[in-house]
Design a protein around this nucleic acid. Structure first.
Lengths: 189, 189
DNA sequence: GGGCTGAGCTGACAATGTCAACTGACGAGC
DNA sequence: GCTCGTCAGTTGACATTGTCAGCTCAGCCC
């Protein structure tokens, strides 16, 4: 197989993104140094500057890609005629929760303020399918309000779980219970 | 007035904390360097190590103090017989929202994972008065569940507002509307 | 008065992000 | 087939920063 120059450059870019994401997952933000990213991608410490304007840009791209993966799944899910709306909703929220719990550093990066345009665009892509599913459940006119309520609640749950402030012994409840309570309240409408 | 050695040391410690908090508010986490903290407090870059084990410890203390101030207000508020319970609740949540909006960097620091023991202890101090007020509204048996729901929702609202993901033109709603919706749903119980 | 303690200072060092100058290979145009 | 520009990648250098070791010195105890 012949590897052209642009293909090789694209492969390096991919390796850099994977290396950064891996280091972030394993050791948190402090573990992501351009030297280590380069080493893991098999290039030098200066190589990232050929693909990203600076370290922040590299991390921003990692975050945007994560949002895009989430959006891809949401689009796919919303289009599936075999899945009932409640289950679609549950799976979408569960996807967010899973990242928050299994890749907390990535999750924080995805919500780092101020989010750049690239991140905001990627994050917004999930909104369409999400609101559409909610529309089936609570009606189109209320879908946005309840969507915002659900998203902010899940985001809050993840954040407080991560910082250790939301524990079962402190609040006699947990994430699932809160979500059940919330979706139950919405279902009552 | 005579200033003893320990008094002077305590004053330095206070100045260091104020300097760190000020730099955080003004320029975010990157602006908080030990050299600048020292300069602003009128001491050298090494002085903080006489009062804190490292930079992280200094920042942790800043966060813990912020939680303590919040808890002080919550305790005071809960004990005030002249204020109706709904208003107490609203004021407590508004206090959190105010920090999130006016001192976003401090707010992030307060929720930085993993929170140390000192921060968790300070953050927990508000729980008592908060749950007590909620108990008056929804009954003691449900106070914890609704408390967790409310807190996580507010936390989520603040986080998504800060990262630019919760905007009125995207969701046709805002923080106040979401909270109204939520407290309305709770009030229906 | 003498010694101790602890606050604060300074020189030094390693890690890191960043840039400028350089190298070398690929590919377009002749 | 040759030339030459382009661009991915390297390397030396530098400024910033957190941290530590060793030092100074003022206040406190006996």
């Amino acid at each position: 197989m012949v590897i052209s120059r642009s293909e090789s450059a694209a492969a390096t870019r991919r390796s850099l993104l994977d290396a950064a994401a891996g280091l972030l997952d394993e050791g948190g933000p402090e573990a992501v140094t351009l030297r280590e990213v380069g080493a893991r991608a098999g290039v030098s410490r200066g190589a990232p500057y050929r693909h990203f304007v600076d370290k922040g840009d590299l991390l921003t791209t990692v975050a945007a890609e994560a949002w895009d993966r989430l959006a891809d799944r949401a689009v796919e899910l919303a289009a599936d005629p075999a899945t009932p709306a409640e289950e679609k909703l549950r799976k979408m929220l569960a996807g967010l929760l899973a990242i928050g719990r299994e890749q907390p550093h990535l999750y924080r990066l995805m919500h780092q303020a101020p989010a750049g345009d690239e991140v905001l665009r990627a994050a917004s892509r999930s909104q369409g399918p999400f609101v559409a599913v909610l529309g089936d459940l609570v009606g189109e006119d209320q879908a946005y309000r309840y969507g915002a309520l659900l998203l902010t609640s899940v985001h809050g749950i993840i954040g407080m779980e991560a910082s250790g402030q939301l524990t079962a012994d402190k609040w006699h409840t947990d994430a699932d219970d809160i979500l059940t309570l919330l979706t139950g309240m919405i279902g009552d409408r």
